[in-house]
Computed example of a mutant assay.
Amino acid sequence: MDSKRQQKFARLIQKELAEIFQRDVSHLFQGSYISISGVRVSPDLGVAKAHLSFLLNPNGKDLLKEIQFHSKTIRHELAKRIRNQVRVVPELIFYIDESAEYAAKMDKIISQLDIPGESKEDPTNPFRSPEEEEDDFYEEDEDLEDEEEDEDTRDR
Score class of each variant (00 low, 15 high):
Glu149Asn: 11
Asp152Asn: 09
Arg75Gln: 15
Glu66Ile: 01
Ile13Gln: 07
Gln112Arg: 08
Ile20Gly: 09
Asp62Lys: 12
Gly46Phe: 01
Ser42Asp: 07
Ser32Pro: 02
Lys8Tyr: 02
Phe127Gln: 10
Ser129His: 05
Glu133Ser: 03
Gln112Cys: 02
Tyr33Trp: 11
Ala104Phe: 01
Ile115Ala: 02
Glu121Ala: 11
Lys4Ser: 09
Ser111Lys: 12
Ile96Leu: 15
Gln22Gly: 06
Arg87Gln: 11
Ser119Ile: 08
Pro90Asp: 07
Pro130Phe: 05
Asp62Met: 08
Lys8Asn: 10
Pro116Cys: 06
Ile109His: 01
His27Val: 07
Gln14Tyr: 07
Phe9Met: 15
Glu139Tyr: 08
Asp155Lys: 14
Asp122Ile: 10
Lys72Gln: 10
Phe69Arg: 15
Ile67Glu: 06
Gly38Val: 04
Arg154Pro: 01
Glu16Cys: 07
Lys80Ser: 12
Ile74His: 03
Pro43Asn: 12
Ala18Thr: 13
Asp114Gln: 10
Pro126Lys: 04
Gly117Ser: 12
His76Gln: 14
His51Glu: 13
Arg5Asp: 01
Lys108Tyr: 07
Val25His: 09
Glu139Lys: 14
Glu16Lys: 13
Gln22His: 12
Glu16Gly: 07
Glu19Asn: 12
His70Tyr: 13
Ala18Val: 01
Ala79Thr: 11
Glu91Cys: 03
Gln85Thr: 09
Leu12Phe: 05
Leu12Lys: 06
Phe137His: 11
Ala48Ser: 14
Glu148Val: 12
Phe21Met: 08
Leu64Trp: 05
Leu63Ile: 01
Asp152Thr: 03
Arg83Gly: 11
Ala50Phe: 07
Pro126Gly: 04
Ala104Val: 01
Leu55Val: 00
Ala48Phe: 09
Leu144Ile: 14
Ile110Cys: 01
Lys80Met: 11
Gln6Leu: 05
Lys49Thr: 14
Lys8Arg: 15
Asn59Lys: 13
Arg81Ser: 11
Asp135Trp: 08
Glu16Asp: 13
Val39Ser: 08
Val39Arg: 02
Ser53Trp: 12
Val47Pro: 02
Arg11Pro: 00
Ala104His: 08
Arg128Leu: 14
Asp152Arg: 12
Leu64Phe: 05
Ile20His: 09
Phe69His: 15
Ala10Tyr: 05
Leu56Thr: 00
Ile96Trp: 05
Glu142Met: 09
Phe54Tyr: 09
Ala103Pro: 00
Asp62His: 09
Gln30Thr: 09
Ile36Trp: 06
Ser26Met: 05
Lys65Asp: 13
Lys4Cys: 00
Ile67Asn: 06
Arg23Trp: 02
Ile74Ala: 04
Arg87Met: 07
Lys120Trp: 08
